[in-house]
Amino acid sequence: MKKYSLAAFLLFLCVGVMLVNQRTSEGEKMNTWPNLPAPIGEAPMLITSAGQATEGKVFSFITKDLHLEGDYRPRALASDLYDYSTLVIVAGYSPHGLNQTYRSIKEEKKRVHRLLHEAERSSIPTILIHMGGAARDDEITWSIMEESMHHLDYVIGFREMKQKKELVKLADDYDVPVTLVDEMEDLRTPFNSVFR
């Protein structure tokens, strides 16, 4: 029996961690904005990635489905913003995506920071999208969101996320409206409300 004890312990540990993870990611229900009461953005929009995850690409396809005019430029610089009326930042840190750009995370954060500054200076509304949910709630992605918050005009994220409470509180501190949704399909309505 002794030879099975560690196997049984690991199995129990696994089940325990699974239950804890489920409770942490779901947590209590929170009331957020269902969508914006009035549009704040205008087309064309510049969609860029903060962290080079695939989410940027996926989101660009959603905007196409919504017939919104804009470009997806994952490595856009502050100087590229002059042509656009709205900035959409899709947050999500991907080590493999970043490897494709030959940039470090520090350089990536600096690029995003400059873009946000430029948008603020040019009075361009900035929207942050976090569509990784519980699967992409790592520290680096969270730090990107945290550092960007005071430049933002609207945040759309997933309800299933570890830092959900902190996100809502942070947005509240900077008077940024937040909408949390259950799944990707639900992103469309709040995002549409930015423009229409």
């Binding site: 993870n21 489920q22 999500g92 995506g97 699967a135 992409r136």
Partner: peptide, 14 residues
């Protein structure tokens, strides 16, 4: 299984 903590690596999420 994502909410239980599975598939949190970069490729799996993507």
């Amino acid at each position: 299984m994502t909410k239980f903590g599975f598939g949190s690596d970069d490729f799996a999420v993507s």
